[in-house]
Write a protein that binds this DNA or RNA. Structure first.
Lengths: 128, 128
DNA sequence: GCTTGACCTTCCAGTTACTGGAACTGGCAC
DNA sequence: GTGCCAGTTCCAGTAACTGGAAGGTCAAGC
């Protein structure tokens, strides 16, 4: 099938699919006319990548996961470790964001938000 | 003072300070020898930017906040709105990350993580 | 046979917020 | 005058796409 169909079935934009090919993530065959040709397997792998990206894995992590997925002789410990490292990064990000949210919420709470210039948010940012 | 001092006092790398100047966020004066010259006010503003960035505001948001900070006639509602929009973006990110974390934690939990190839994480990604 | 339109191709540039490196100058100690 | 640190500019690279230009393919309709 053409890239448009593959896009529809994988949920990825054609631009993204071409990009993944460019960086060597997934190389489909070509027809005589130069069009990319996707089969069931390729679409399946595109969906795999889409899901992994949806869980926040970087493209390089996706490359690694895909390699493991393709490798029948993989050890599940490899996958688990990759996922473990990633989930810890996610947790760290959540913590960082929560801390920002808390600080910001405090500042916003104190701000009148009217036409006057006094502003605890700016005061907080300026270091008072 | 020179950029090195300003860097030390603001906590921002010199590269970053030069970058902020390049995009017109903060323009220090110059000495005869061409070196940038920072005063108390500039360092104060650099710290302002550093704090805002630390709370996750984009550089463009920082530009806006800095303009408000400089404007004695600002309305605090402007600041509050900017912060409100931002905190909602933060909350959305937290939610997205939490959802990723939950899904991933479930998958990791089920994975033996040994030398065998069977892996619920890969199964989950492949859509089974 | 020709045109239209949807879909495909490649390539180049832009996005965010820096960061690294090269090549050169300023200013001071020895 | 030589070394050295700290300053200068400019160019390129990062992550993961995304938009747009310029042009080729193919089936359908007139």
């Amino acid at each position: 099938m053409n890239i448009g169909q593959a896009s529809e079935r994988s949920g990825l934009p054609t631009k993204t699919i071409r990009y993944y090919e460019q960086i060597g993530l997934l190389r489909p065959g070509r027809r005589d006319n130069g069009f990319r040709d996707y089969g069931k397997r390729e679409v399946h792998e595109l969906r795999f990548i889409a899901r992994a990206r949806g869980l926040g894995f970087s493209v390089e992590e996706c490359r690694h996961l895909l390699a493991l997925y393709r490798d029948e002789g993989r050890a599940s410990s490899d996958v688990r470790e990759t996922a473990q490292v990633h989930i810890e990064a996610i947790r760290a990000k959540i913590e960082a964001l929560r801390s920002m949210e808390k600080t910001l919420a405090h500042l916003i709470e104190r701000c009148a938000g009217d036409e006057r210039p006094d502003c605890p948010i700016l005061d907080g940012l300026s270091g008072d």
